[in-house]
Design a protein around this nucleic acid. Structure first.
Lengths: 138, 138
DNA sequence: ACCCTACATTGGACTTTGTCCAAGTCAAGA
DNA sequence: TCTTGACTTGGACAAAGTCCAATGTAGGGT
């Protein structure tokens, strides 16, 4: 937890109460909150934190590579604190919950040279979609 | 082109001028327009078409499986008329253009049973990201 | 060919998600 | 402790999409 804050401070981050609570919210479970969810959880601890500050802080964390932005559904982006190990996502088409998964092999290897159209490809993200056990029986 | 309209009519679609132009816009090149782009192109032919109608029609086409919704960047969704053959997308991180690509193998096979968490998985989408030749030199 | 009517369209208000900015505040180095 | 530039605030704004009551019309029935 203060691992994250430690790293950030080393990179010249100014450590404010607002940034601390945002980092703490993200650093809890392996959840994937939207910006608004982060904001409301942060506001539980620091009631006057502004939405704009949460957005700013999240963008900075993304830029610094500490957090990943995930947009699975064209609705609100979600923020994934597990940026250290590469992983992919499994999304429930009904309720929208997300789980981290670790497929075998490298998806990049599956794309033949002839299909790369001269792009300098830097990464491949895989999203598995289906119905989670909770939603299956409804 | 009227292929599409044909299929739709067989499924009980009421064929209106608005739906026709939307289908025609999508049925052109292998592009991936946003809803607003579809709207403005449709409006070239049928000036008074409402934005809401375009949104409605697009959702119906998606429901009918004739068109795919693609959300690559958390901004506007794009609509992919190439729903008949499965394919994946290659996206330029700078300019946002999208190309259809066909990786080898089945990404679903790469996800071990132990990583499925009881989900009934129905599909896997892969998004390759990089810089396109046009954007590389800037 | 003409009527009906259920289905489609319209336009405008509204919501959600996110960005921007000028003014005020504060963390941290001197 | 003082200073200063970086940070935060709140509110206005923007983009993308949804909703709804009123109006229009495609296509089946006669």
């Amino acid at each position: 937890m203060s691992d994250l804050l430690e790293r950030l401070r080393e990179r010249g981050w100014r450590l404010t109460a607002q940034r601390r609570v945002v980092a703490e919210v993200l650093d809890g479970d392996h959840v994937h909150y939207t910006a608004d969810e982060v904001h409301s959880r942060a506001a539980d601890r620091l009631p006057e934190i502004a939405r704009a500050t949460v957005y700013n802080t999240l963008s900075e964390l993304v830029t610094l590579g500490e957090v990943l932005e995930v947009s699975t559904d064209g609705r609100a982006k979600r923020y994934d604190p597990n940026a250290r190990h590469t992983h992919q996502h499994l999304v429930c088409s009904r309720c929208g919950t997300i789980r981290d998964v670790h497929p075998t092999g490298d998806p990049l290897a599956a794309l033949p040279e002839a299909e790369r159209y001269g792009f300098a490809i830097v990464d491949a993200t895989v999203t598995y979609r289906g119905t989670c056990p909770n939603c299956t029986g409804s």
